[in-house]
């Protein structure tokens, strides 16, 4: 075997070497990793305080080697505001799902953004409530079948998929909004860049930064992992266009 092999890929230091509880093909593991890579590269691990959401990712602290706190469903950004105002020298971020950020926590999301709090938000949009059994999320696509839209989401009854990132982008208090996805290695590289940018902005004191990540839930989409990734690309990203919104 050749010596002095160059190492191209390894587990981020701030991520524990541990199997996750996520389903096969779930995007959370990838996104957790991207956060840890950004944290390592920016050398901010010792300053980070993470807010774990209610949802599948509530146990994120089982995988992250930095300070963490749970927030009540939807209240992550209020909790983050309290922490950051007390400890402006720390790097505070929330990790929130679509139900958390765009349904039960909509008020907290909009007002924290509007105050221009110097925070980083990683918003995971997988178009369903995963932990509770695949119910309709605010971001569920029209026609998409879920546990609570058995005939598919119909805007006459359930309204339209909520484009909250677009809504946030028009607020004066918001510095940075980008929508990315984890549907392919190329997209993951772009997602990583955006996540790192959102943390860099906080380090630089620039204000509210949010990255929406289109992610997969093969279990409640009723798809195989590969199919799910293709669905993000071919269906979901059409309704939620990728790219920088602000």
């Amino acid at each position: 075997m050749k010596k002095n092999k160059q190492k191209f890929f390894s587990r981020p230091e701030s991520m524990y070497d541990r199997l996750t509880h996520y389903c096969p093909g779930c995007g959370h593991g990838i996104i957790h990793r991207l956060i840890c890579e950004a944290v390592d590269e920016l050398k901010i691990r010792e300053k980070v305080i993470a807010i774990a959401p209610v949802g599948c990712a509530v146990l994120a602290y089982d995988y992250w080697d930095f300070d963490c706190i749970e927030a009540a469903h939807g209240r992550a950004l209020a909790v983050a505001t309290g922490i950051k105002r007390v400890r402006p020298e720390n790097i505070v971020f929330t990790y929130q799902g679509d139900g958390d950020l765009a349904a039960i926590g909509t008020a907290e999301t909009i007002h924290t953004a509007n105050r221009g709090e110097n925070l980083t938000v990683i918003f995971v949009n997988n178009a369903v409530y995963g932990m509770t059994g695949g119910q309709m999320a605010p971001t569920t696509l029209l026609g998409q079948k879920t546990a609570t839209t058995p005939r598919g989401r119909d805007n006459k009854n359930e309204g339209f998929p909520l484009k909250i990132s677009e809504m946030l982008a028009i607020l004066d208090g918001v510095k940075y909004v980008e929508r990315v996805s984890v549907s392919s290695p190329q997209e993951i590289i772009k997602a990583k860049k955006a996540v790192k940018q959102a943390f860099q902005n906080q380090v630089d004191g620039l204000g509210f930064s949010l990255v929406e990540v289109l992610s997969s839930c093969p279990t409640y989409w009723g798809m195989k992992p590969k199919q799910a990734m293709d669905w993000i690309k071919e269906v979901m990203a059409k309704r939620f266009p990728l790219g920088r919104l602000k």
Partner: peptide
């Protein structure tokens, strides 16, 4: 709701 949760965060921060 936001007020009490801000207090929750501030308290957690010491």
């Amino acid at each position: 709701l936001a007020a009490i949760n801000m207090v929750f965060g501030a308290s957690a921060a010491g």
